[in-house]
Design a protein around this nucleic acid. Structure first.
Lengths: 231, 231
DNA sequence: TGTACATCAGTGAACGCGCGTTCACTGATGTAC
DNA sequence: TGTACATCAGTGAACGCGCGTTCACTGATGTAC
């Protein structure tokens, strides 16, 4: 196999994986602030200082969890938007948004790690930026494809001024070809998805939209329609 | 004055106000997880146990901060949407949304206390629900007024089934008269506002939409147009 | 294949810090006669 | 107005808990000859 060949090296890989698994469990159980190296060590039946053979610090561990979560979410969205016929842009947009919500509901602490309040005493290093954009790229894929096939459009004049320039820079940065007017609406729609999930996880829909399935569904179908996506 | 008449009672009111002020400062400086009674006591030059004459527990203090923040935000939004002519529904919606963003940027920790990740080890008591809805009511006021004057409308058939029933219940619960199809879109728009602010505060627009003023402005104008609000 | 040495996983104790909360107390302020 | 008593703000010590991180160490695993 491609794995390391000495028993020691194999054990090391295993232990590292165990640490991340337990850390994820702690995250799920206690939220990001409750994640502690001592608790992880306890769970693994190891003395706290032992972990420093594997992680440089608590922050470094948090960072790997962040990177992991972005990658997992991006994969999940990619999986959802790549099922079915490529030209069904409307359905693919909806599938991507639904995938985000499903993922978030299944592991709320992990979602909050990415989009919730900043973890106290932790500032995300620059290396988290690129994985974060991968999620956006995955969500926007149906829009990009719609543009490529000549559909996907919005009303109104394209934004000029500051916003116009920002949108062009963002499109270039993401390496996608979407006209400013459409991209602006797509970013707003993405924000709406995040907002809906944040409010749902925060319990703000309790007593009103519970379950929020129908509300979410209606909202994202509306978005797809607004973006001119068709099936 | 209407205040209490003994020096002791006046001092008590003052101390309580001081505690909340310092707690707010701690919140702003450290985030909700960093808010500790000991730190508040330290700042006030008082021994930690002394605070228990004024607050029953840390959680109770957090709850008052939550209630306070909801009330303040609702006031702010009301102030924004009630300036200018009442029938300028479009402008009032935009003003309300901008007020939310401005408030959030001025005191991010307070915003996160309401809409961010749950505070570890703290679960919001039922008494926070009503103040939370006051914010939504304030934001929706322009929509309600638009409906009352015969404007404010959306395309498409009204939602039926589960969502239709939920929307009717919500309208009744909020004591507002907004048709389901419009209310559904308004809730989605409100979610978008929250999502835009969450992403901005979370640094997700860094390197893309910085400042996010133009993006936010375009998004909320779009919302107002979508909701059929006019000036 | 056997042995000497190097590597490194994991231990255990400690440092210095933080937290919420309880409890018996002192002494100043307020109240009732 | 003066005095006896009750109220209550704030003290200081303590309990029991948590945390990240460092450091000198033992003993097993791996490597080179």
């Amino acid at each position: 196999m491609a794995g390391p060949h000495t028993a020691r090296a194999r054990a090391r890989v295993q232990t590292l994986a165990d640490i991340r698994r337990v850390a994820l469990e702690q995250l799920a159980a206690e939220g990001s602030a409750g994640l502690s190296l001592r608790a992880v060590a306890r769970e693994l039946g190891v003395v706290p200082s032992g972990l420093y053979r594997y992680v440089a610090s608590r922050d470094e561990l948090v960072t790997t969890l962040v990177l992991d979560a972005y990658a997992d979410l991006a994969d999940t969205v990619r999986g959802a938007t790549s099922r079915g016929p490529r030209r069904r842009h409307h359905a693919r947009w909806v599938a991507g948004a639904v995938a985000v919500r499903t993922w978030a509901r299944a592991q709320p602490a992990r979602f909050q790690l990415l989009y919730g309040s900043p973890v106290p005493g932790y500032t995300a290093p620059a290396e988290t930026v690129e994985p974060a954009t991968a999620v956006v790229v995955a969500v926007l894929a149906p829009v990009v494809d719609a543009v490529a096939t000549g559909s996907g459009d919005v009303d109104g004049p394209p934004p000029g001024g500051t916003l116009g320039r920002q949108l062009e820079a963002v499109a270039a940065g993401l390496g996608i070809d979407v006209p400013p007017g459409l991209l602006s609406r797509a970013v707003a729609a993405w924000s709406e998805v995040i907002g809906l999930v944040v409010l749902e996880l925060g319990g703000h829909f309790v007593g009103g939209f519970e379950p929020a399935d129908a509300l979410f569904d209606a909202a994202v179908r509306d978005q797809a329609a607004r973006l001119g996506l068709q099936d």
